[in-house]
């Protein structure tokens, strides 16, 4: 996937909101393909996307999208990008078709856009809904429509800011199917997420924490660099277990014993011929990006509580106080 020309190149981007430093000298090179920006809430992901999409002007540093500077040619950059925002941004009172038609006009596609719209609606499976007002659509369908809208003007790079947040598992999977289909058509993706499962699927992952870019690479590479695999064994022979723990320096996890190793295959190649007969159950746990994140930041990604606004939203969705 990786070719010579970077799709996107950022150099020492810095951005602060008043006293808060949201991005601290972030430099980034995004090759064509699927790139994930992983980090907890408040890490600066949306700010970075805002800068790349030229919605915010960099206070320091510079970025280029396909060689076009975000400072000097923001309109050219905008033409090359497709955007899916974190918050919904459809006109609920217009129909599905009208929303797309509006997009086509403001992206300079002119009036001959009916065919392209039909094509996109086909792709995100909303063709039968073309004349329905957007407010009649479910949440997942709205997201699909936003995705379709973002690719309408055939952007080279799609920026997605937490595109699956707040969706149920089924809708989420569907969005992913479309994203894969798009990749097949040669559209590159840059996606921000705080979900590891999403980042795992990327060609490249960059980890952002507290405004700093702390690591970047292929997911397997990161795991190899920063995490060790664990082998969990359940043995029939308790004495053997004791002995192994002493010799190999493992640990106990309930009934089982575990060993950390960077080379699980080699470990097993040595272990199995000797003690294979005593093994009742065996599990190899490869390091996840979660482990990588934990190692790099000292904090777990999942433990992050929802931020205030999300908490309020969740509360409101339950119907607030009155319904209890």
């Amino acid at each position: 996937m990786t070719t010579a020309e970077p799709l996107l190149y950022a150099q020492s981007l810095r951005y602060r909101y008043g006293e808060t430093l949201a991005l601290d000298r972030v430099s980034l090179e995004v090759p064509p393909g699927f790139f994930a920006l992983l980090g907890p809430n408040g890490a600066g992901k949306s700010t970075l996307v805002g800068l790349l999409a030229t919605l915010l002007a960099p206070q320091e540093g510079e970025a280029w999208v396909l060689g076009h500077s975000v400072r000097q040619h923001p309109r050219r950059v905008r033409q090359l990008l497709g955007l899916v925002f974190q918050e919904p941004s459809l006109d609920e009172r217009l129909t599905v078709y009208e929303n797309l038609s509006f997009h086509a006009l403001i992206y300079g596609m002119g009036f001959g856009h009916a065919r392209r719209i039909a094509q996109v609606l086909e792709l995100v499976e909303l063709a039968e809904w073309a004349q329905a007002p957007v407010r009649a659509l479910s949440r997942g369908m709205k997201r699909r429509l936003e995705l379709g809208r973002a690719i309408l003007h055939r952007p080279r790079l799609l920026l997605l800011d937490e595109p699956t947040t707040g969706l149920d598992v089924q809708s989420r999977r569907r969005i992913w199917d479309y994203l894969r289909a798009l990749q097949g058509e040669g559209v590159s993706l840059l996606l921000t997420t705080h979900q590891l499962e999403e980042a795992e699927q990327a060609d490249q992952v960059a980890i952002l924490d507290r405004g700093r870019l702390i690591e970047q690479g292929r997911p397997e590479e990161l795991k190899r660099r920063h995490g060790a695999a664990r082998i969990l064994l359940s043995l029939a022979d308790e004495a053997l277990a004791e002995q192994l723990l002493r010799e190999q320096g493992g640990y106990r996890e309930g009934e089982r014993i575990g060993f950390e190793t960077a080379q699980p295959q080699e470990f097993l190649a040595r272990f199995m011929p000797q003690h294979g007969g005593a093994v009742r159950h065996l599990e190899v746990r490869y390091p996840s990006l979660e482990d990588v994140f934990l190692k790099l930041t000292g904090r777990a990604l999942r433990d992050e509580g929802p931020d205030g606004r999300q908490a309020l939203l969740a509360f409101a969705q339950k119907g607030g106080e009155h319904t209890r």
């Binding site: 030229t54 919605l55 925002f85 918050e87 941004s89 997009h103 403001i106």
Partner: peptide
């Protein structure tokens, strides 16, 4: 309030036209 403005402001459309 409902975010549609972002769609317009993020587009390459000229502000005076909007």
């Amino acid at each position: 309030e409902f975010g549609f403005f972002r769609e317009v402001l993020a587009s390459p459309a000229a502000r005076p036209a909007v």
